[in-house]
Design a protein around this nucleic acid. Structure first.
Lengths: 207, 207, 207, 207
DNA sequence: CATGAATGAGACTTCATTCAT
DNA sequence: GATGAATGAAGTCTCATTCAT
């Protein structure tokens, strides 16, 4: 993948993600990235003066849709639908670009480096918070059983999503991430819906 | 932590886990491990001829209770209780040895190295499978709502557990992992219990 | 210091001297010079095709007044006054442009590069020779005690001047170089004046 | 020069000084040092974990006799003799090891690096101070003309010595540094001796 | 005159690993 | 078991320099 239709800087980022996907965070080397791009290491450093800058760019790229997804979700009127929308948006993104899931699985490893710790935490807790807000609103609207707190539900959903991604990776993307995640989430949320809502047939957006 | 009461070989393993915990997988170096143990790098190689051997030992150490926990869980008569038992056993282990959770968060990164891929997958899918069996049995016994498949439930639970560990790490172990995981799981499982069971007050083991 | 009132070429030279002053000879890089000038490295190379050319220009700039100072000194009638004049001219120049003294302290380091060796030696021995001629003439005129040869006296004076510059630099220009050098030189020369002249009160030029 | 009779660590230091002598401070590279020692760069780094450590060792080596020379000088009864002794000790050291004078000529360049600044200043001002104390004592003993302050005299002498070393280097060690420095110093000091002492024939130590 | 993008060589440094003692 | 001294490969990064635009 030369990503030749893009600007060098973006191409380097994508190539770096490819390397992370194949060799893991510890396997990224400017040498390898340069080799794959068919340029010299010095050229990479012209675009990203330090390796950290490159990795920061990767993280920014990784989280580029976070704000949009969060806001779009929060604007939805049906908060259960919103939770569903939130997760499937990510699933769709990942399904179109499976390599990026390597980043999702490297939060902790990345956070060991002081340079990334805060950024990673911001991404992780940011997503968790969006889910939590959606869950809280859903509970306020009596759409959900009261026993699980919004925070707990957020963690369950995000945790499941990450696990699904890991399984997906370990099975070399052998199934549709989006379909799997969506169907599981649908059933899960349905099971948690308050009884008086349960009877009504919920219609979920197509995927 | 010198771990001076243990044999050198085990001490090296524990020190390696400490290093993984602080610097991440990419931060382990024979030099650092040796320095922390107060021995020379060469001495480390007397115990673990290659770095891969050391990491393999770390993974074996990490998964040392897997078989026991799995079997103990499967022997329980109440399968919902068993799921609960399974998760809290790990939570208890991790709470007593927080550094080890660094390994849990590094599955994917480790799996990039061909040497560990199978072992990691075995650990991950092993735990998932145990949970799945327990869930399946619980469903067979009509303890659970039918809509979530055993595999889905297993993935939700394990995913939540991993997410809880990550949050725990990011918050520098500021809360009791075991209590948090147990209470969340209890509420979650309660929400998923079939209606006819729901009325009966479930008694969960103390934690 | 952008030196924006000068031509680019001269600006680059002054900037280079600033860099030498701060980072030393080994710290000059086209990158740093370009950055400080707010231009690209390539632009620097338009003016000085090779780094050596830039350094040669710096040395020429450094020694730009040498010929004038030498000739002015040699034209003075009182050769003791001439020695005094010679040294204070440099002291004045340096005091108005302290950064330039970095070059004075880098003779030997510069001379390691074959490209500069002869130029540096020419500057150093040139100044030494001027002083020596002045000293010789002063001795011929029976103004100085006979025991110190002209060459020795020249080396003592130039050596002292260089040492004074180094002290001045190490003390972050905390005193007036010109005043210090002038007063010391005055006393020194006075002490070396032949006895029959000593009685007459010598009047030194104001500074 | 392999310096094969010494320990590796000391050999590396001496080789480094050789390199400084030939290429200047800016020309030292671990690669060059290693090559000259016939070992790999990694081996150099086993002895000196960072290049700065190596340069620090060079500076320590350079100043290794400072304390001894200072104390020996201060213990001498005749303070004029002491000044003479102080300078000729260094001249002798340098004459036996001409390469080391490259360091003397690089004070300012070295001081640009924060890591060395204080050490260099300590060496420079340390030597200056010793000379100054000797000069002050000589004046107290009415051995010297009163007009030059001790500090001025110290700077003149050290400055001359440094200039002599530079000349010596530029003339490829074509004369005896010790003899030249000693004879000049003798005449200089004789010229500065108070009149009532001047008559007495001063006997200087042999060199 | 100036820039942007690149390069090849080389800088310092770290790594896993070896081996004689 | 352990050390000290070494290594070769690789890592990140900087340098002077080139060239098409």
């Amino acid at each position: 993948m030369g990503y030749s239709f893009l600007h060098r800087k973006e191409r380097i980022i994508l190539t770096t993600i490819d390397v992370i996907n194949e060799y893991g965070i510890q396997g990224i080397s400017t040498r390898e990235v340069a080799k794959r791009q068919g340029i010299t290491e010095a050229a990479v450093f012209k675009h990203f003066p330090r390796k950290v800058d490159l990795l920061n760019a990767v993280l920014d790229f990784y989280a580029q849709y976070d704000k949009d997804i969060s806001m779009s979700s929060l604007q939805q009127k049906d908060y259960l639908q919103a939770i569903f929308y939130f997760v499937t948006r990510y699933a769709e993104y990942y399904e179109n670009y499976p390599q990026i899931t390597a980043v999702t699985q490297s939060y902790d490893v990345l956070a060991c480096e002081a340079d990334f710790r805060e950024k990673i935490k911001k991404i992780y807790f940011g997503r968790l918070t969006t889910l939590q807000i959606l869950a809280a609103k859903a509970r306020e609207a009596w759409l959900l059983s009261c026993e699980l707190s919004a925070a707990q539900l957020a963690e369950i959903i995000l945790g499941f999503f990450h696990a699904a991604c890991l399984t997906w990776r370990f099975q070399t993307y052998a199934f549709s991430l989006k379909k799997y995640v969506a169907s599981t989430l649908q059933v899960l949320l349905n099971s948690l819906i308050t009884d008086r809502k349960k009877e009504g047939v919920r219609k979920w957006q197509e995927f």
